[in-house]
Design a binder for these strands. Structure first.
Length: 317
DNA sequence: ATGACGTCCTGCCTGC
DNA sequence: TGCAGGCAGGACGTCA
């Protein structure tokens, strides 16, 4: 689900809420996350981000990494076991869901606290960290794809999974010449690779996912299936600029809520309403009114304007 | 080496 | 109404 802007939004929200807190315990029903008791007792210093990974730094140089993958949400609030309080009354929590139906087998229900979490977020809570102020950090993860790692800063930050990631597109130190360099390298190595696949490649640039790849390519009038060898220098410059611009804009708007994404307060991201291409199949292109199309590229749905975004051509509309 | 496809999971929507 | 199949924002692994 979340791409760089969503993860950045969540990291900022968590940083505000979790600084100074200590993890006093945890609960999970999914052993594959691999969370162990060693995570208990550490005091949080700050929250950061690398690519699409949330990094919770502790004062004793330990780090908890959470990659939310497709369906993960990290949210802060208070929950309690369904059968601890609500069972007898069958009354819904104020503003929360009623018991019964698909809820009856769930173990945790929200205590109204702060943030309009969706039913789905509460339904799919798989992991809860208890904090020393009575609040909780919960991972809602419908598809159980999320990846979690805990260890020393050295163990986590120097792990290959992070070390191999490409540059952060919004890093001020990431200049056009750097982008041109890695693009040239990629094009030399795999000249037939489609531009969209390259943008999705986290070892090329980190943080771009399916939504923003479509957005960037629409913005620069480049067909997502364009092979790297046909990308002109002017397009490389444009892609570089558009990447920074669109990701920054999305962060400003709190990310994209195509469906169920929420920030750590449970609020929707507002980029979706101003998107250019993603999930706009059959809707008119904002430049030329042509109906946008959707095709599959490397197994991912790709949205583009068949008139503006033509292979080989840079200018069209 | 490369690209196509399968995999981890689950729920929802669509079309028959 | 029911049910099989397709689909989902990520990223890795496998195989030809």
């Amino acid at each position: 689900m979340p791409e760089l802007p969503e993860v950045e939004t969540i990291a900022r929200g968590l940083d505000h809420k979790l600084r100074g807190r200590e993890i006093t315990g945890f609960w999970t029903d999914w052993p594959k996350y691999g969370v162990k008791k060693s995570v208990v007792g550490h005091q949080i210093s700050h929250i950061g981000r690398r690519a699409k990974n949330i990094l919770i730094f502790f004062q004793d140089k330990h780090v908890l990494l959470v990659h939310q993958k497709m369906s993960g949400h990290l949210i802060v609030g208070r929950w309690q076991r369904a059968n601890d309080k609500f069972k007898k009354t069958r009354e819904p929590a104020q503003g929360g869901p009623a018991l019964g139906g698909k809820w009856q087998n769930q173990k945790w229900l929200p205590i109204p606290f702060k943030g309009p979490f969706t039913e789905d977020e509460n339904r799919f809570i798989r992991l809860i960290f208890f904090l020393d102020n009575g609040r909780m950090l919960a991972l809602s993860d419908l598809r159980r794809f999320a990846k979690i790692r805990f260890g020393t800063e050295k163990e986590v930050l120097e792990h290959e999974d992070l070390a191999k990631l490409g540059p952060e597109p919004l890093d001020p130190k990431f200049r056009l010449k750097d982008f041109e360099k890695i693009f040239a390298k990629a094009a030399a190595r795999r000249s037939n690779l489609k531009i969209k696949q390259l943008l999705l490649d986290q070892e090329f640039i980190s943080g771009i996912g399916n939504i923003y790849a479509d957005e960037i390519l629409w913005f620069v009038k480049t067909h997502p299936a364009t092979p790297l060898k046909k990308i002109k220098p002017a397009q490389i410059k444009a892609i570089y600029a558009a990447t920074k611009k669109i990701l920054a804009k999305a962060i400003k708007l709190g990310g994209t809520s195509a469906d169920d994404y929420r920030d750590s307060d449970g609020n929707k991201g507002r980029y979706f309403s101003v998107r250019y291409a993603y999930a706009r199949e059959k809707m008119p292109c904002y430049r030329c009114k042509t109906q946008l199309q959707r095709i599959k590229i490397a197994g991912r749905s790709s949205h583009f304007c068949p008139k503006c975004q033509i292979i080989k051509k840079l200018e069209c509309c």
